[in-house]
Amino acid sequence: MAQAAIPQEHKWWSGGKSPFNVSYGKLMMWYFLMSDTFTFGAFLISYGTIRFSQEYWPNPNHVFNSFPFAGHEANLPLAFVSLMTFILIISSVTMVLAVHAGHNMDKKGVQKYMLLTILGGLAFLGCQAWEWTHLLTGAHHVLIDGQIQELNTTVSHNPWGPQVMHNGELVGTPGPVAFGGYFFGITGFHGFHVFSGVVINIIMYIMTTRDVFHNRGHYEMIEKAGLYWHFVDLVWVFVFLCFYLI
């Protein structure tokens, strides 16, 4: 079977071979990704359900308007998250190049591009850590019980409610409680996926360096890791859409 040329009238489903011409491992990865799609789908649909049952939802342009080293007064809506997204997409590109190098049995190329992909993943996680820290520590003035108080953004409260007039000036109020829970919950779950992806990529890098794939005669593991990495990237696109753009 190993060297059998596939004849023209070949029946793919008649047994003795993979009907999709893929290894079982890749097939399992595809089904796992479908399964994971349902996990994220459940989170995002829950988020949508709650968000649209609220009278008010924070404007992402106000919440996410800061940038590292730009100072407190900078108003750069969505600039930082765009950078994060860009980094993650570039890491997907380098992943494609790593897979391509693997097809050509180019060990040096695989190493180079896997390293870049790992760096991209770490950079994304770093950005996310900064953004979380910024939200968790950044206190804003809000009106609570007729008094101005400082409020940061956590899973149980946030300062991103509608603005009201108080003593002749506009001041914020506490935002919907669900905002923080879903934001930290879903971006955290995604971040956990990115983290797992980085770990997997590091393992792939080590295995490449130790010639495991070279001796095996193919770099399919890189491809499977790549499927996962692209999936994580794709999920981010939806998270980005749901939390930052809409």
Binding site: K11, G15, G16, S18, S23, Y31
Partner: peptide
């Protein structure tokens, strides 16, 4: 479940459509 699916789709013996 992933194993069951992959085995049924990929590893049927020759002739077992």
């Amino acid at each position: 479940g992933l194993n069951y699916i992959a085995t049924i789709l990929n590893m049927r013996t020759k002739g077992l459509s």
